[in-house]
């Protein structure tokens, strides 16, 4: 059991027998009232989100999770397919649960995943990842406006706004949360 006030982003809970992961929490102190917490929860199996308002002192059922390395194999348009690196067992995760992750994960790469029983609750994408610039528009000659930018596409299909000097075939570091360009990476 855990007090609702201690639930944080990433905490896994069991609600009516189903696992949910907290994706947002906000403390609310209604005018002259007791402390409450508003939780936004997501079901890892369906991607469905749920809002719960609880008193900070209420008990919630938290679940024990473990981290395991899993190799990302491919997606079939509906599910991500992973292989556990320790048992070679294959596991599917609905893509709808992790929107945009298809553009952030690289085929064959190993990711740390949060598991509850045999179910993936979270895929931990590193906060900064190096991507290969697969497609880039040519910079327009004579375009010297300061701070000018253009879009490139990475090998994973992610579109990123970058400074105009970035060329196809180069590598860049990207903030995976905001999907913003951070810097060019030299080989």
């Amino acid at each position: 059991m855990i007090k609702a006030g201690q639930i944080d982003k990433g905490t896994a809970l069991l609600i009516k027998g189903q696992p949910f992961v907290c994706i947002d929490r906000e403390f609310v102190n209604p005018g002259k009232g007791s402390a409450f917490v508003r939780l936004k929860l997501k079901s890892p199996s369906t991607g469905q989100t749920l809002s719960e308002t609880m008193k900070s002192q209420d008990n919630a059922e938290d679940i024990q999770v473990s981290d395991r390395d899993s190799q990302y194999l491919y997606n079939d348009g509906e599910n991500f397919h992973f292989m556990l690196t320790d048992t070679f067992e294959q596991i599917e995760v609905p893509m709808a649960t992790f929107p945009d992750y298809e553009f952030l994960m690289k085929d064959g790469e190993t990711y740390r995943c949060t598991f509850w029983e045999e179910q993936i609750l979270d895929i931990q994408i590193p906060p900064k990842v190096i991507f290969f610039v697969a497609e880039a528009e040519e910079a327009v000659k004579g375009d010297t406006v300061q701070g000018a930018t253009k879009y490139i596409t990475t090998e994973t299909g992610l579109k990123v706004r970058v400074p105009i000097f970035i060329k196809q075939g180069e590598k860049i570091r990207v903030n995976t949360e905001t999907k913003e360009y951070l810097e060019r990476v030299n080989n």
């Binding site: 609310v28 209604p30 009232g33 007791s34 409450f36 508003r38 809002s51 308002t53 008193k55």
Partner: peptide, 11 residues
């Protein structure tokens, strides 16, 4: 009563 009221009010 206030706590129960606020559960309803906030939700």
């Amino acid at each position: 009563w206030e706590e129960t009221f606020n559960r309803i009010f906030l939700t």
